[in-house]
Amino acid sequence: MPDFFTSIGTLLDGSFLQSGALWALSTIPGFPPIIQTVHILGIAVVMGSVVLLDLRILGLAVPSQKISEMTNRLMPWLWWALASNLISGAFFLFGRPLRYFNNPVFGWKVSFLIPAVLLTLFFHVMSKRQESYWESSSKRLWSARGIALLSIFLWIMVAMAGRWIAYAEYIYYPA
C-alpha cells in the first residue's frame, strides 16, 4: 500500500467523521444493511447504465437503442448513482478507516474505480461535444468497442473487489 493511501486512514481514524459514522451505524436500527442496499442499488444503476451501454456498443444488447441517444440518456443516472455510492460507501469508510486504507483489496477497488470513472467520463464528454461522435466513422466505432470492452472489465472488477474487501479483512485483521 502506498504511504499516502494508508495515511488517509490514519488521518480519518479518531476524527469526528469516524465518530459520526460509527454513531449512525450503531444507533439507527438496521442502518448497516440499509446503507449496503442503497450501495448495491447504486451498483444496479451502474449495470443498467454504463454496462448496458457497453453491451450495446459491442452489439450484444438492446439493438433498437442508438448509442449516442443511450449515452445522453443514461449517463446522468450513472453520475447520480456514483455520487450516491460515494455517500453510502463513506459511512463504512469513515467508520473503520484503518481497515479500508490498509486493505490491499480496497486499494485494488480504487485502482479499478478511478480508470473506470475517467474512461466513462471521456466517453460521455466526447459524445456531448459532437452529435453521434462515436458512430461517425468506423474507426471511432472500433475505438468505442475497445473502450466498451475495457469499461465492462473495469466496472465488474470494481464491484468484485468491493465484495472481496470484507473477506480480505479476515486475512489482514485476523482478530
Partner: peptide, 8 residues
C-alpha cells in the same frame, strides 16, 4: 453483480 444486473 448478477443481482445488480437483474435489478438494473
Amino acid at each position: 453483480i448478477a443481482a445488480a444486473f437483474v435489478v438494473g
